[in-house]
């Protein structure tokens, strides 16, 4: 009756656990592999570019940096809209911080012993353990950088999750045990959806949709929404603020179910910039 999100360090078999959990619970399974084609179709961005966005954090410099944050918003939006349905197992990190306040989402983190993961990687690639070690550590760092750059979170912080499972050395019984734990947790009444939490999820999806709509104007704005009322927090140069607000409102009003829009503009930063700081 609810949503499970599972995230895991690389090569800790998180994806397999997520898939097995979905199968056992008779839930729908979704991850970037399912979502990216949808994003690509809707927004006309190639899948490989989207894949790249999920691996490399937008650096802020260079030609690509400007478009990458938008890709993340696109992916987030489709995930959030996907999660409006219930009975889903979602494997991935994208969008997790957005649904932190939705009570019927059970957030699971799977961690595994580093040595176990290295062995896992070596077995998968058939290469040497030394090579695998380097690859795993590199990927860990990349993941860490990515979540810090995009969400300013440390994915290993247990406060972000409802359930953290350490599957140790990744053996078959560890795998089974993790699966049991997740299934029994989700059957817990407290993760059941209710009017309030469904509304929260709807609000998240709506905010994402608004950000997607306005991504070409400002990819860093914050959006909150409640029952069709949308609050946009953005920055603008004072002179152009009026036009910007108008443009935003016109665009957002076209979204279904939007009833009212409030735009809050922060001038501070630009005042400083114009003074040559």
């Amino acid at each position: 009756m609810s949503i499970i999100t599972i995230s895991a360090g690389s090569y800790s078999n998180g994806r397999q656990i997520a898939k097995s959990a979905a199968k056992r619970l008779n839930y729908e399974y979704v991850d970037s592999e399912n979502i990216l084609p949808l994003v690509s179709k809707e927004f006309g961005v190639s899948e490989s570019k989207l894949m790249q966005t999920l691996k490399e954090a937008p650096s802020g410099v260079g030609m690509f940096s400007k478009t990458k944050p938008e890709y993340i918003i696109f992916i987030e939006t489709l995930i959030a809209e996907y999660l409006l349905k219930n009975n889903i197992v979602y494997y991935g990190v994208v969008g997790l911080p957005l649904i932190q306040e939705v009570s019927h989402v059970c957030k699971v983190q799977i961690i595994a012993d580093l040595e176990g993961r290295i062995k896992n990687k070596a077995k998968l690639d058939g290469g040497s353990e030394e090579k695998a070690r380097k690859a795993v550590i590199k990927e860990d760092n990349q993941q860490k950088k990515w979540s810090e750059a995009v969400y300013n979170i440390n994915t290993t912080d247990p406060n972000l999750y409802d359930l953290v499972i350490n599957i140790g050395h990744i053996k078959d019984d560890d795998f089974e045990h993790a699966l049991e734990t997740i299934i029994s947790a989700v059957e817990h009444k407290k993760f059941q959806p209710m009017t309030y939490s469904l509304r929260c999820m709807k609000n998240v999806a709506m905010s994402c949709r608004v950000r997607t709509t306005l991504a070409d104007i400002d990819s860093k704005m914050q959006v909150k929404s409640d029952e069709g009322t949308v609050y946009i927090y953005t920055k603008a140069v004072k002179k152009k603020a009026q036009d910007k607000v108008l443009e935003m409102k016109q665009k957002v009003m076209r979204i279904e179910e939007v009833k009212h829009i409030e735009v809050f503009i922060d001038y501070d930063l630009f005042a400083k910039v114009s003074h040559g700081q």
Partner: peptide
């Protein structure tokens, strides 16, 4: 609330 058996909650 849900854990303690509430049917639903609205804000």
């Amino acid at each position: 609330a849900m854990e303690k058996g509430a049917f639903d909650m609205i804000a």
